[in-house]
Amino acid sequence: MTEWVLKAEGLSKGFTLHLQGGVCIPVLRDAGLVVKAGECVALSGPSGAGKSTLMRLLQGNYGADSGAILVRQADGGVADLATASPRAINALRRETIGHVSQFLRVIPRVPALEVVAAPLIARGMPREEALARAQALLRRLNLPDRLHGLPPATFSGGEQQRVNLARGFVADFPLMLLDEPTASLDAANREVVIALIAEAKARGAALVGIFHDLEVRERVADRVVEVAPLREAA
């Protein structure tokens, strides 16, 4: 179980801002990252260095200018996210790449329980079973039962983030991407997240995270990878 799950190499990414006269912002050049099964790698670096940009590339949300993002799927097949078609990326997100963003994107009128169960239902799990799993995880994250049936639009920041975390951890994704997963949590829930990360590692998931909370990083990360800012801006 020491095979890599994620192998990113030679990644470059910049932004051309056509509305600002075509100015180019180079952010990553020749960046790489290898994460093995059961390992959690933390990205660090100063604000604006490109940590979130790298994370978004790994999720397929941004497109790489060059390089490869190889992801090993549960069936052993390897896909290159940097060149995959939109349909292939959607399939990877359904089966392989789990993601916890910094903030929940709320969908109008969809109750928290359904938001959390959706990744399981998308993978074909029977609805009742998916909802039961979602409920158990929301309870573990101390979200009161009376909120489970409500759409998260009116929830507090910490409540929304716990829904987001539950959605990310509800399915056994081989690769998990976590952008500031504990940012708006209290101490008790932070402990739950630390335990969830440990369990994901134990089942052989590869994790990449941005943790501004140094204590959390210390406790979950096996390695820290520095994302260095590019000096020469064009």
Binding site: T16, N61, Y62, G63, P86, N90
Partner: peptide
């Protein structure tokens, strides 16, 4: 392309 990529990382 992928909806969220076109909206979050638009090229044109």
């Amino acid at each position: 392309g992928l909806t969220d990529r076109v909206l979050d990382d638009p090229r044109h």
